[in-house]
């Protein structure tokens, strides 16, 4: 019976700016629920009175542990100390929070402090007594199977299964356990200038051309192909040509 700790954060709705459950952390919690016979411990470091935390309870947990730290505090020491005491087999969280610095560093710092293995961007997980099998999601739909010993810290990617809805009744009934914790203030934000994000113009790839007329032509005209045309071939000829083209461009491997 593996014990899984899920680190939850409070998200921020991109349009309204209201607090919500962070989508990636909700996926991490959903992934923890998908492990058979797992004991799931949900942990949040922050303000215990945040109403958005109830959305996580509504996903089907009875209890949620909140390490109460001030708003500008660093959550890593508190989380590390709590996890050391809990000593879970697996720590899951979203790959990036959305509402603070969003550096994505918390799982790495925890893994480093506790000496756990660290795997990023997983889409699926299964665990046995001593090992975990993680499916890592890569761009273009590629996947990689990683087998690693326990304990392990893993971050969850958008390729993981979507989280279940939060149920209102369970969210009301769930219990939030509040633990006091120490958090040294994070000074990086004081050293930085913080301002609203200003959308920047999209960078265009300019074609290297001699004159402005040529550049305009390269930007505006429809790209035309190499233009090999076969007119009314027999179906077999056409199939051979297509297959040879796909093999030549290494789109498919040649079977023979």
């Amino acid at each position: 019976m593996p014990s899984v700790a899920v680190l939850l954060s409070v998200g921020r709705h991109p349009a309204s700016g209201r607090a919500r459950r962070a989508p990636l952390d909700a996926r991490a919690l959903e992934m923890a629920f998908s492990l058979p016979n797992a004991a799931v411990h949900a942990i949040h470091a922050g303000n215990p009175d945040e109403p958005a935390l109830r959305d996580y309870l509504g996903m089907g947990m009875e209890r949620l542990t909140v390490l109460s730290i001030p708003r500008d505090g660093d959550p890593v020491p508190a989380l590390t100390a709590h996890l050391e005491q809990l000593s879970p087999d697996m720590v899951l969280c979203g790959s990036r929070a959305e509402g603070g610095e969003d550096s994505g560093m918390v799982p790495y710092l925890i893994a480093h402090a506790l000496g756990y293995a660290m795997v990023a961007d997983i889409a699926a997980v299964s665990a046995s007594a001593a090992t975990a099998t993680l499916t890592q999601a890569l761009p273009r739909g590629r996947r990689r199977l990683i087998e690693t010993g326990l304990p392990v810290v893993a971050t969850v990617n958008t390729a993981a299964p979507a989280p279940r809805q939060s149920s209102f009744g369970r969210a009301r009934r769930g219990v939030i356990d509040i633990l006091a914790a120490d958090a040294p203030p994070d000074t990086l934000a004081d050293q930085c200038e913080i301002r609203p994000w200003r959308p920047r113009p999209k960078r265009m790839r300019l074609a290297a051309a001699a004159s402005a007329a040529d550049r305009l032509k390269a930007m505006t005209e429809t790209r035309s192909g190499e233009g090999a045309v076969m007119i009314q071939p027999s179906p077999e000829e056409a199939a051979r040509a297509i297959y040879a083209y796909l093999v030549e461009k290494r789109i498919i491997g040649d079977g023979s």
């Binding site: 969003d102 200038e193 200003r198």
Partner: peptide
């Protein structure tokens, strides 16, 4: 770089 879910940016 962007922060707070992309709403703010921090410069240093």
């Amino acid at each position: 770089r962007r922060m707070r879910g992309g709403a703010m940016e921090m410069a240093a």
